[in-house]
Design a protein around this nucleic acid. Sequence first.
DNA 1: TGCAAATGGTTTCATATGTAACTATAACGC
DNA 2: GCGTTATAGTTACATATGAAACCATTTGCA
Lengths: 152, 152
Amino acid sequence: MAEEHHPDHAPLELENFLPYRLSILSNAVSQAIADDYQRRFDLSMTEWRVMAVLARFDGLSAREVAERTLMDKVAVSRALAKLVETGWVTRATHDGDKRRSVLGLSEAGWAIHEVVAPMAREHERNLLSKLDDEERTWLVRILDKLQAIEPK
Amino acid sequence: MAEEHHPDHAPLELENFLPYRLSILSNAVSQAIADDYQRRFDLSMTEWRVMAVLARFDGLSAREVAERTLMDKVAVSRALAKLVETGWVTRATHDGDKRRSVLGLSEAGWAIHEVVAPMAREHERNLLSKLDDEERTWLVRILDKLQAIEPK
DNA sequence: TGCAAATGGTTTCATATGTAACTATAACGC
DNA sequence: GCGTTATAGTTACATATGAAACCATTTGCA
């Protein structure tokens, strides 16, 4: 069954254009989750991501947080300013390198994490429940391949 | 092979968290394309999306453009203001309903489209080239299912 | 008719985000 | 040691985005 070959200059069908579909799906999913914790804790997506990596990797510096979240350092700096202010993240100065910060979740931060992480997982479960096992397996495999570092 | 069952409160592994992966992938892809036409034509992603739907559906109103692009009407209004200003989109008033606009690509707008659409397709091809036929088929199927309207 | 409610679209304002400049500290080369 | 360069992080500025208020017109209906 030969597929119609669209001339390159024909109008784009956004609804079949992969980058567009990814964008719509991704935004819908992320926004749904973010709305949830935003409403309950006044926590932005960037702030939550910072907390999530600090939950896993205690003692990171701001730069390391930026690396792990793929956010830029300004965004991390701002998120940290607010998180430290609200008392969910602790910030100390590295021994032997006064430029570096040493970050971690506070008690209160862990308490937030214990609520938000399950919420996030629940959303993910909900999303994945639309797929069967075979589709889930393919999805992971496909994402792995698409995300492989651009060779260029 | 039983997969470890993560307790809900365990730290999220962002790199395995589907919404996060989608977000990273989607942003990387969209941004790469947008950088391209932004640099060449000073055209934002929202502006390009408006042009893309007008290429397919001539004579839409602003609200219809918003529906088709899933953008909100303010974003569309702003994109149109700029596109009309640069002369890539024409705007008239609907006969019989003076609230509604009647939009379309101008000659110049079509010329831009003839350059940008192939560029966008090229990026998509590039992305899809990382997958084999079977994976591509599954991807479309999976996206269809994930994007099925939330029943809730 | 004529007036309340709805619709198309723009403007305003408040917030978010990215880029570049800046400060402080540390590392490097001589 | 000491000047240059690099690194961690913040601040300032300019632009983008979203929510709500707003204006004009049209629709619904007593």
